[in-house]
């Protein structure tokens, strides 16, 4: 299917991007394009103008800020997954980035794009929810910080206002130290949207440890399950099964080509319990698509260490 006709503009700065959006009709920001271009092809979205963000230097870097680690909206997932600071402090995000599409897509797709697309099945969303990340959204009215929790409104819908541009995803310092594993079921092992995605994490240090439970592909948006988290905080791993039941009750899955609502609901319970069990050691059962050890992150070669093209 052919791409419909549109004009293409390159923004060199955030300000220019905002100005272009304001003066061009039916404009959309273009980051990796791995969701936008197929949607344009299929007629699911229509834009007469695309504004490319990838030449904006300030969006193409990962930087340490007072608030934490800020990941530019144009940084591809593959670069995030091999960035030393991300790998050291936010391994959950690395794991989730590496499950988005396949690797060539990760070389283009961005973190901001993955969450702004607001797919209920967004793999990175569960990591960002767990890490209590925020996004910095900029518009002519100014800049605001939106928590990822508050960002999602429904399938394909966010609370972003028309023309508002997400410039960075910010991982708070405090979110360093969360560990856990992404339990994911899909129809095949390779590249596929999640049928169910569950991330159970606990914080390092502090006694008793705190817990987070995030779900993907089982509700109109990715979501956290606060009461399951509270239960685990109170009672620890022995509450694994009940935490799973709480999560199961909180999700609102649909039946689609990837699975039935009933199956998804039940799997949330199973995977949450497994996620809790995995916190205290590797899961004893390794099954297709259900997380497990997962592939190693390729060691960056010397020529590509932390480098951006």
């Amino acid at each position: 299917m052919l791409l419909p006709s549109f004009a293409f503009s390159t923004a060199r700065s955030v300000e220019e991007a905002l100005e272009l959006w304001a003066c061009l009709p039916d404009a959309a920001y273009l980051a990796g394009g791995t969701d936008l271009l197929p949607q344009l092809r299929l007629g699911k979205r229509a834009h007469r103008n695309l504004i490319d963000l990838k030449r904006i230097q300030s969006l193409s870097r990962i930087r340490e800020t007072e608030a934490g680690l800020a990941i530019g909206a144009a940084v591809p997932l593959a670069d995030i997954a091999r960035h030393p600071a991300v790998r050291e402090h936010y391994p959950l995000l690395v794991e989730c980035c590496r499950r988005v599409g396949a690797w060539p897509l990760q070389n283009r797709a961005t973190l901001a794009g993955n969450i702004c697309n607001a797919s209920p099945a967004a793999d990175t969303a569960v990591a960002l929810l767990t890490l209590e990340a925020g996004v910095i959204a900029v518009s002519p009215e100014g800049e605001r910080v939106i928590s990822v929790t508050g960002l999602f409104r429904g399938p394909g819908q966010t609370c972003l206002r028309p023309g508002e541009l997400v410039t960075e995803v910010v991982l708070p310092h405090a979110s360093a130290g969360w560990h856990g594993s992404y339990q994911r079921l899909s129809r095949r092992q390779g590249m596929d949207l999640a049928t169910v995605g569950v991330l159970v994490a606990s914080s390092n240090g502090g006694a008793p440890p705190r817990h987070r439970v995030s779900l993907a592909a089982v509700a109109p948006t990715p979501l956290r399950v606060a009461d399951a988290e509270a239960l685990l905080d109170r009672e620890g791993p022995r509450a694994a099964r009940r935490a799973g039941e709480l999560a199961r009750d909180r999700c609102r899955p649909i039946t689609d080509l990837r699975g039935s609502a009933e199956y998804r609901r039940e799997m949330v319970g199973v995977l949450v319990a497994r996620g809790v069990a995995a916190l205290s050691g590797p899961s004893g059962i390794v099954v297709p698509g259900a997380g497990g050890p997962g592939p190693r992150t390729p060691d960056p070669g010397p020529q590509s260490q932390g480098e951006r093209p």
């Binding site: 690797w103 092992q189 390729p298 960056p300």
Partner: peptide, 24 residues
């Protein structure tokens, strides 16, 4: 795909190859 992988990771395990090429 393999060339891109080997630039990043000159000594990939079989698991690495399977992961990097699952979009092919």
């Amino acid at each position: 795909a393999a060339l891109g992988l080997l630039r990043d990771n000159p000594d990939p395990s079989e698991e690495d190859v399977r992961w990097a090429m699952s979009g092919n």
